[in-house]
Design a protein around this nucleic acid. Structure first.
Length: 244
DNA sequence: AACGTAAGCAACCGCATATCG
DNA sequence: TCGATATGCGGTTGCTTACGT
């Protein structure tokens, strides 16, 4: 014989949690810890399945949760980790104490994907975006009578992106003397003002994060318009090739 | 003010893997 | 070792809120 079934679904409550349910779950876990999720609702007096309790605790009730918006640094780190790990949200979340996989996944799907597209980067492959392909994706994801609206928005965003990047490139070119070097890191070319290679190599050896000030663009993009400013970006990787 | 649409997010579903008896 | 179940993960759904007309 194996284990007992997770839960009897008949009669179990579903949908949003009430304040009272949250209080019961939190009180129970803080007093007793988690031995077996299947037993938690039973002992805590909840008409929920263990799976639902686990999710509620991990994504909402855990006292060590870090709430609030994602910082620019966190977003850049998520992008870097996604380049290496793909949609392995729990692995990505393990690099962010207090953040949940669900939170990061939601943020990726609602914010970062759009941001990358605006920067001309395919959010799936992290390669320079084939505009025609992206247009097709947009066409597929929107009904025909919405297409005119989408194209309208896209034009505006492309213009604003251009302004931003021109500003970045001008700034970078005008302060050429401050640029210490250009490095090739994973799939990105990184133009840095303060990259300390010794510190970088140490961080790689130790598997820790590394921050720098500068700009980056996807490897293989020849256009200067692909440069993206990344001030005080925090990057974390497990492999590196670089060129001076 | 009312309605429609989009965005954000919490929660659920189903599958893969780990674990137990 | 094997079958049954628990757990964890990623994809998806659907509700709520914000925004635009």
């Amino acid at each position: 014989m194996g284990r007992q079934p997770c839960c009897d679904k008949i009669g179990l409550k579903r949908g949003p949690w009430t304040v009272e349910e949250d209080h019961k779950l939190m009180t129970f876990i803080l007093n007793n810890g988690i031995q077996c999720w299947r037993m938690v609702p039973q002992f805590a007096g909840l008409m929920r399945c263990g799976k639902s309790c686990r999710l509620r605790w991990i994504n909402y009730l855990r006292p060590d949760l870090k709430r609030g918006a994602f910082s620019e640094i966190e977003e850049n780190q998520i992008i870097e980790l996604h380049t290496r790990l793909g949609n392995r949200w729990s692995k990505i979340a393990s690099h962010f104490p207090g953040r949940t996989d669900n939170e990061i996944k939601n943020h990726w799907n609602t914010k970062i994907k759009k941001k990358l597209r605006l920067l001309g980067i395919n959010p799936v492959t992290h390669q320079p975006l084939d505009k025609e392909q992206d247009k097709n994706e947009l066409e597929n994801s929107n009904s025909q009578n919405e297409q005119e609206k989408v194209n309208g928005k896209f034009t505006v965003l492309e213009e604003s992106k251009g302004d931003h990047i021109n500003e970045v490139v001008e700034k970078a070119m005008s302060s050429q003397s401050e640029i210490s070097s250009v490095h090739l890191i994973n799939n990105y070319e990184v133009m840095s003002r303060n990259m300390d290679m010794e510190m970088l190599m140490t961080s790689i050896e130790n598997g820790t994060s590394f921050s720098f000030q500068g700009s980056f663009r996807p490897l293989g993009s020849s256009s200067v318009g692909q440069w993206v400013q990344s001030v005080d970006s925090l990057m974390c990787w497990d492999g590196i090739d670089y060129i001076d």
